[in-house]
Amino acid sequence: MAFKGAIEIDTAHCKGCGVCVTNCPTGSIRLSGMVNSKGYNYAEMTGDACIGCSACALVCPDSVITVYRVKI
């Protein structure tokens, strides 16, 4: 069974720590070149390989990632 996923990030409250990036098995999350109002390079979704596994969200200390997943 294959899954396709998507994430939504509360970029205003992301602290740009990067632990989500190293935990993503598909390279679907990266730190933006842009900063939020706190000056952090916030995380953003990249590409369309996300499988909705929630790994990024599970390790996010600030709980700013929401994950969606569908079976395909």
Binding site: K4, G5, A6, E8, H13, K15, G16, C17, G18, V19, Y40, G52, S54, A57, L58, P61, D62, S63, V64, I65, T66, V67, Y68, R69, V70
Partner: peptide, 26 residues
């Protein structure tokens, strides 16, 4: 189309308040 309520698998826990945590990043 993926980001629909019926496809939600992870969200911020309901008991975590909206206060921004003062902890350092990470």
């Amino acid at each position: 189309d993926i980001k629909r309520p019926e496809n939600l698998v992870y969200r911020k826990p309901a008991l975590i308040t909206d206060n921004v945590m003062h902890y350092c990043p990470g």
